[in-house]
Amino acid sequence: MNQQSRIISVAKQTIETESKAILYLSELVTEEFADAVNYIYNSEGRVIVTGIGKSANIATKIVATLNSTGTPAIFMHAADAIHGDLGTIQQRDIVICISKSGNTPEIKVLVPLIKAIGNKLVAITSNKESFLGQQADFVLHAYVEKEACPNNLAPTTSTTAQLVIGDALAMCLLDLRGFSSRDFAKFHPGGSLGKKLYLRVSDLTSLNEKPMVHPNTDVKKVIVEISEKMLGVTAVVEDNQVVGIITDGDLRRMLTKVDNIAGLTAKDIMSKNPKKINNDAMAIEAMELMDKHGITQILAEEDGAYCGVVHIHNLTKEGII
């Protein structure tokens, strides 16, 4: 087997090993899992997630997922906890402790301290019979038969399983809270993801000029309007309602068909029934409409009245595309 083939083989084996382990996790979701979710949901405290080594890395991701989906959470490193950070835990908090073996020295020191404070303890572990599993109030079983590592040493399958259990926990809590995309947007105001969730068409039309001509406007003035407003398009408006649209493409097609443009008006070259979108719609909807119809601009209206234009460049600039 050459090196290229070996790389592909190892990659596939890793993915298959981990995927089988993840699939098996669904069989380990029991009423105890549901009890843990309900307890967290009804709790007035925060969720403190702790672990050591690679499990600590997984803990930080679970904390991030919980926070972004409506469950207040804090990461506490297991080693730091026994050297002062135990004060992170408040009276009503719930502690989730992540450990594959459930028997590491730090865990054996930390768990009795948590129990002494009186906080409920949730374990995410591969070994239900471990010290952690025996001491926990709730055990979320993240059993894996073997690591994807050929030496069965490097945490691979086990950390993937921990992450999946954490995601399942977070999604159950999200479902119980009725957490919506609008709620999600409140916690993700920055970046393209946030903008997809909260940016509206009106936020974009307000940035642009508002090109518009009357159906009887002379073609020369139509050309000037499109050029000055720099959007490659103008709406044809009568009584503040859109009756048509003229694009750069319409002008080019006109010039290939007509030798003398004298006497031509907007209504002679406009396209009727243009694609429109409500000014209060989400910007992502404008993008989807443009993509569906193969256009680069779309007209916005509110209560039937013309509001302006959204250009594909607006969406690109805002990171929507």
Rank of each mutant, 00 (worst) to 15 (best):
V224H: 04
I52C: 10
I246D: 06
K220H: 13
N240R: 11
Y306W: 08
L86P: 00
E31F: 00
M76L: 15
S101N: 04
L28H: 05
I277L: 02
V63F: 01
E301W: 04
T159R: 00
D85Q: 07
E145M: 12
E209F: 13
I74V: 14
G194Y: 03
D175N: 13
M1E: 11
E302N: 15
D280S: 15
V236W: 15
H313E: 04
S68Y: 05
Q297A: 10
H83Q: 12
L23V: 10
V37H: 00
D175Y: 02
G232I: 01
P112G: 09
D175T: 10
G263A: 09
V122E: 07
N240E: 15
P274V: 00
E318A: 13
I107R: 09
F131A: 08
A161M: 09
I7S: 11
K186S: 11
Q13G: 06
T265A: 07
M290H: 07
I277Q: 00
H311D: 07
T234I: 03
V10W: 09
I312K: 15
S130C: 04
G249L: 04
T157Q: 10
A136H: 05
A148P: 05
S68F: 10
T160N: 03
V258F: 11
D175S: 12
V95C: 06
D239G: 02
C97N: 00
N278W: 08
A235G: 12
N279T: 10
D268V: 01
F33S: 03
L66S: 07
G294H: 14
T50A: 11
E147D: 03
S101C: 06
T156H: 03
K196D: 05
L315N: 10
Q13S: 15
E318W: 12
T50E: 01
I107M: 13
D93E: 06
I98Q: 01
R182E: 14
